[in-house]
Nucleic acid binder design. Structure first.
Length: 312
DNA sequence: ACCACGATTGACACTCGCCT
DNA sequence: AGGCGAGTGTCAATCGTGGT
């Protein structure tokens, strides 16, 4: 149990700016990057980390090949410090009121390249129109790191087909997606209903992106999946329209991705010749953001743009 | 051994609060 | 108002580490 003296000591010595530096280094794993994010030089950031090291009597970050790795104390502090800074920001924002027209806030989003394709064109335009000072900062991290990123404050919100079953997270279903088959508009198969025979006999371009729905196709096809002829496997979507253009190849993508890619690339989106369960697209966040006015503003904007009631 | 990159350290400047 | 010290910033030099 802490005493009055403990509180006095903390109140007298602990500087919130040092905690901001701590969280920035925790998220960037680099003194230099953390400094540039905070508008400080490398040496000022290093000095700030050193002051915190002395105050907490712990190395906090150790230099390794992977960057500045946190010590066990730093890892233990990350979540409560992140929560505390979030509460302070909430309190300040609450007292001032969140004003989308004047805020200069940065929202850090996690999504896959499919997500960027699906969300960013409309979301960026909407943010620019309603909150010209807001910056969206999007990152891709491995699927299993989403929870840690949201928990430590490395990201504010995640979007996509990535359910986080863990405690302390909130998820909101935006809409259901289905998968369709993209083919060159000149492909004879694009002029009639796609049959299972045509689907299995034509060569496929398979996208092996982290959140791609090919695993659902394999599951739905069952033992027939092995009959698919795969001509190419790619990691992301950038090259897919160029590969399909003027080719006999097929690629399975979500309806939203098909809507973005088909028109400009003279491609046709064809219903699949088999049934698939709908795929839920959600937004996820840590529960500490529930009442944050800025966060609520962004979430409701995303719902209005991409929720079930939204119309293009 | 050399090089590149990034963290640390030292010297110095500036600001701010406290005291006289 | 002016002196003083603490805190924190920049700049430049140095150090440590990994890659070639």
């Amino acid at each position: 149990m802490s005493t009055i003296d403990d509180v006095d000591v903390l109140a007298g010595r602990l500087d919130l700016n040092l905690l901001r530096v701590f969280m920035a280094v925790m998220q960037e794993r680099s003194i230099t990057l953390a400094g540039s994010r905070l508008g400080l030089t490398q040496s000022a950031t290093s000095a700030a980390v050193n002051r915190l090291r002395q105050q907490l009597n712990d190395q906090l970050f150790v230099r390794t090949r992977q960057g500045m790795e946190p010590t066990s104390l730093a890892i233990a502090l990350a979540t409560p410090v992140g929560n505390a800074l979030g509460l302070i920001r909430d309190a300040l924002e609450e007292s001032r009121g969140f004003d989308a027209r004047t805020t200069a806030r940065e929202f850090r989003l996690l999504m896959t390249d499919v997500g960027e394709l699906m969300f960013l064109p409309r979301l960026t335009a909407w943010v620019h129109e309603h909150a010209p000072g807001v910056r969206l900062s999007c990152r891709q991290v491995p699927r299993d790191q989403y929870g840690a990123e949201l928990e430590t404050g490395g990201a504010d919100l995640a979007l996509g087909m990535l359910p986080l079953g863990e405690r302390d997270f909130v998820q909101q279903r935006l809409k259901d997606e289905t998968l369709v088959c993209l083919a060159c508009a000149g492909n004879p198969v694009a002029r009639k209903r796609l049959t299972m025979d045509a689907f299995l006999s034509l060569p496929h371009v398979v996208i092996r992106a982290p959140a791609m729905g090919d695993r659902f196709v394999v599951k739905a096809l069952g033992e027939r999946a092995g009959r698919r002829k795969i001509v190419a496997e790619v990691q992301h979507y950038l090259s897919v329209p160029m590969i399909l253009r003027d080719s006999p190849f097929l690629a399975v993508v979500s309806t939203s991705v098909a809507a973005e890619l088909a028109g400009p690339n003279r491609l046709a989106a064809l219903p699949l010749p088999f049934k698939l369960e709908p795929l839920a697209i959600r937004q996820f966040w840590h529960k500490r953001w529930n009442n944050d006015p800025g966060h609520r503003w962004l979430r409701s904007g995303i719902v209005s743009l991409f929720g079930r009631a939204a119309r293009r």
